[in-house]
Each structure stands twice: as structure tokens, then as C-alpha cells.
Computed example of a mutant assay.
Amino acid sequence: MKITIIYCPKCGWLLRSAWMAQELLTTFGSELSEVSLKPSLVGGVFQIYADSQLIFDRKTYGGFPEPKTLKQIVRDAVSPDMNLGHADVK
């Protein structure tokens, strides 16, 4: 599965996007074929797609997710049966 992170470069979200991509590659290395970063032409955009399905939108969510939440969102789209260990503990 391919993950695409679309971010607003004018908002300075490149480093956040790269960090999130690194977290996803570390956690889901064998489940993902690719993680790409794509600058948005529209300001304020931060979205994550699994293949062509939108799985996270900053505006809808009301901010950025914590790493634990991000991994759970991606896991639910990529590999629903995968155990995230401590990230699954409430």
C-alpha cells in the first residue's frame, strides 16, 4: 500500500511530514510499498492518503494527530489486524 502525505509548504509543515513518514516507515515497513511527501498548492492542507483513500485530514480532525493516533489510523487502513504493542494500550 502507498501512503501519501500532502502538506502545506507555506505553513512550514515539511519537517512534520518527513517525521511522520519516518514513523510510518519504521512501524509499517513491510506493509507499505511507498511513503511519499507531496507539497500542496492550497494553503493549510495536511492530509494523509492510503492509496487513493483519504484517511486523515487536519481540518476535519481539528489539528495534528499524536504519533500513537497516527499509527492507529494508518494501521486501520493498511493492516487492521496488526498489533501496535504499546501504541494500542489505552
Results as ranks from 00 to 15, higher is better:
residue 10 K to D: 11
residue 85 G to V: 00
residue 68 K to Y: 00
residue 1 M to S: 15
residue 73 I to E: 04
residue 82 M to P: 02
residue 20 M to F: 09
residue 9 P to A: 05
residue 46 F to D: 05
residue 6 I to W: 00
residue 14 L to R: 14
residue 13 W to S: 09
residue 45 V to E: 13
residue 36 S to V: 13
residue 64 F to D: 08
residue 58 R to F: 04
residue 68 K to W: 00
residue 32 L to A: 08
residue 62 G to H: 07
residue 51 D to N: 15
residue 49 Y to F: 15
residue 46 F to A: 03
residue 21 A to S: 14
residue 32 L to D: 08
residue 48 I to N: 03
residue 73 I to S: 04
residue 76 D to W: 01
residue 83 N to S: 09
residue 81 D to S: 13
residue 43 G to K: 13
residue 4 T to F: 02
residue 84 L to Y: 00
residue 51 D to P: 09
residue 59 K to E: 15
residue 20 M to E: 11
residue 44 G to D: 08
residue 19 W to V: 06
residue 85 G to F: 00
residue 20 M to C: 00
residue 45 V to P: 09
residue 64 F to N: 04
residue 31 E to M: 06
residue 51 D to I: 12
residue 35 V to L: 01
residue 25 L to G: 14
residue 32 L to N: 07
residue 86 H to C: 10
residue 69 T to I: 13
residue 55 I to V: 15
residue 87 A to Q: 07
residue 21 A to T: 11
residue 54 L to W: 04
residue 80 P to Q: 08
residue 6 I to R: 14
residue 3 I to T: 04
residue 26 T to V: 08
residue 60 T to M: 10
residue 80 P to N: 09
residue 39 P to G: 07
residue 80 P to S: 10
residue 39 P to E: 06
residue 59 K to S: 15
residue 48 I to V: 13
residue 21 A to V: 10
residue 53 Q to C: 09
residue 55 I to D: 07
residue 26 T to K: 11
residue 23 E to Q: 15
residue 64 F to T: 01
residue 22 Q to I: 10
residue 80 P to Y: 02
residue 68 K to T: 12
residue 34 E to R: 10
residue 72 Q to P: 01
residue 47 Q to T: 12
residue 71 K to N: 07
residue 80 P to I: 09
residue 78 V to E: 03
residue 37 L to M: 05
residue 85 G to A: 04
residue 76 D to L: 06
residue 90 K to G: 08
residue 25 L to F: 09
residue 63 G to M: 01
residue 9 P to V: 02
residue 35 V to S: 02
residue 36 S to H: 01
residue 75 R to C: 04
residue 3 I to N: 01
residue 58 R to M: 12
residue 27 T to H: 03
residue 58 R to P: 00
residue 54 L to Y: 06
residue 28 F to S: 01
residue 2 K to C: 06
residue 45 V to M: 10
residue 48 I to H: 03
residue 29 G to R: 12
residue 53 Q to T: 15
residue 50 A to F: 12
residue 10 K to Y: 12
residue 16 R to T: 14
residue 39 P to S: 02
residue 43 G to V: 05
residue 46 F to W: 09
residue 78 V to K: 01
residue 74 V to R: 05
residue 44 G to Q: 10
residue 19 W to Q: 10
residue 15 L to C: 04
residue 37 L to T: 04
residue 35 V to K: 01
residue 2 K to I: 13
residue 25 L to R: 15
residue 34 E to I: 05
residue 69 T to C: 01
residue 81 D to Y: 01
residue 23 E to D: 13
residue 59 K to R: 15
residue 8 C to K: 09
residue 7 Y to K: 10
residue 78 V to N: 03
residue 57 D to V: 03
residue 55 I to W: 01
residue 44 G to T: 03
residue 33 S to Y: 07
residue 63 G to D: 07
residue 16 R to K: 13
residue 55 I to M: 02
residue 43 G to R: 14
residue 26 T to Y: 09
residue 23 E to Y: 00
residue 22 Q to N: 14
residue 9 P to R: 04
residue 15 L to V: 10
residue 48 I to W: 02
residue 9 P to K: 06
residue 60 T to P: 00
residue 9 P to H: 03
residue 70 L to E: 06
residue 73 I to V: 11
residue 38 K to L: 14
residue 73 I to Y: 03
